[in-house]
Simulated assay, not measured.
Amino acid sequence: MIITLTMNPSVDYLYKLSTLSPGNLNRVELVSKMVGGKGINAARVSSILGTDTIAMGVIGGQNGQYIENETSIDKFTPKFIKVKNETRNCYVILDKNNNKTEINEYGYPIETKTISLITNNIREILSNEKVSIISLNGSLPTNCPSDFYNRLIKDIRSINKDVKVLLDTSGDALKTCLNSKYLPNIIKPNEVEIANLLGISVTTDVKILKAKIEKNDLLSKIPIIFVSLGSQGSLVKYNHSFYKITFPKINAVNTQGSGDSTVGGLLSAIDMQKDEKEIIKYGSAAGTANALNIKTGFIDIEDFKNSYDNVEISMIGE
């Protein structure tokens, strides 16, 4: 079983137009409204891949009701905590060249009692279910302590040290975790996030990234690092090995949520106890399959199978 946690979910709006002209009237050719939130997207994908998944999170207001209604048809088990404050909105604008502009609300503050309830709910599930991996996803609400994920990892390890933790966040929440003794088993930064962690300029050169990660005292201790490099594929550190991941060029429909879908694929493969390269291929194929669908954080199983067959993995030498 898998648990995903989304502390700051959203209702997402996707606008597609030919050209975005700032400061002028823009006519939208396509509008899509959908459930957002990294952990919810990952849970949807892992459940489509046949893995028993619980999606946890905090929802409220009319947007929260929308999320509850929409996820009732998903294959995962929703365990959302309802609050009074409205769940945030996020907007993505895509032009004909798939250039993306994002506008994300911060979201309302979260009460201390809600934070405690989330922790207690996770403890209860861990004590009563056979959980293989927990994914902690996305940004934290504005007043949530930056060490919340760190504390949660400590709790998880105290209950069951064999449960793996995937951390998919950024900024202070990520840095706080990496500077503690309770490190996640897996992180999934993109090229900008990994450059920030390494203190270097953004690059997609896998040899440069490999050398920098190996010399970094914190990152070298994390078993799996899956670095998304956009159209250039991915770099994966798996224990002491490094891999370059490539796939054929696709006609992407919507790349929003591909990172979350990658997480869903990784979670599913780990829960199914796949081997090293299978885990990498599952994550890569799920991310690619998402880009072929207009719906964010969603894959068609045939797209996944085709993508899986075309993923190429090569080990990066010394």
Rank of each mutant, 00 (worst) to 15 (best):
4 T>L: 05
4 T>Y: 09
6 T>D: 01
7 M>A: 07
8 N>L: 06
9 P>F: 01
12 D>A: 13
13 Y>A: 11
17 L>T: 08
17 L>Q: 04
19 T>K: 11
21 S>W: 05
22 P>L: 14
24 N>M: 12
24 N>G: 07
26 N>M: 08
26 N>F: 06
28 V>Q: 09
29 E>P: 03
31 V>Q: 13
34 M>P: 01
41 N>L: 12
47 S>F: 10
56 M>N: 04
57 G>F: 01
58 V>W: 01
64 G>N: 00
65 Q>M: 14
66 Y>S: 10
67 I>Y: 02
71 T>H: 09
77 T>K: 13
79 K>C: 09
82 K>Y: 09
86 E>F: 04
94 L>Y: 00
97 N>P: 07
98 N>C: 06
99 N>E: 15
102 E>S: 10
108 Y>R: 07
111 E>C: 09
111 E>Y: 10
113 K>Y: 14
113 K>A: 11
114 T>A: 12
116 S>R: 14
116 S>C: 11
117 L>G: 04
120 N>D: 15
121 N>T: 15
123 R>W: 02
126 L>T: 10
126 L>C: 13
130 K>L: 09
134 I>H: 02
136 L>P: 04
138 G>M: 06
138 G>L: 07
139 S>R: 02
139 S>Q: 03
142 T>L: 15
142 T>K: 11
143 N>V: 09
144 C>T: 15
150 N>G: 13
159 I>F: 03
159 I>C: 06
166 L>Y: 05
167 L>E: 01
172 D>I: 12
173 A>N: 02
173 A>S: 12
177 C>G: 07
187 I>W: 00
188 K>N: 09
190 N>H: 09
192 V>H: 11
200 I>Q: 11
206 V>H: 03
208 I>P: 02
209 L>F: 12
210 K>Y: 14
215 K>Y: 01
215 K>I: 08
216 N>F: 03
218 L>E: 12
218 L>P: 02
220 S>L: 10
221 K>N: 13
222 I>A: 12
232 Q>G: 04
237 K>A: 07
246 T>N: 07
254 N>G: 03
255 T>Q: 01
257 G>V: 06
259 G>L: 06
260 D>E: 04
261 S>Y: 00
264 G>K: 01
265 G>I: 09
271 D>H: 13
275 D>S: 08
283 G>W: 01
290 N>S: 11
290 N>Y: 04
291 A>P: 03
292 L>G: 00
293 N>T: 07
298 F>E: 01
302 E>Q: 11
307 S>W: 07
308 Y>H: 15
308 Y>N: 14
315 M>D: 14
316 I>Q: 04
317 G>F: 09
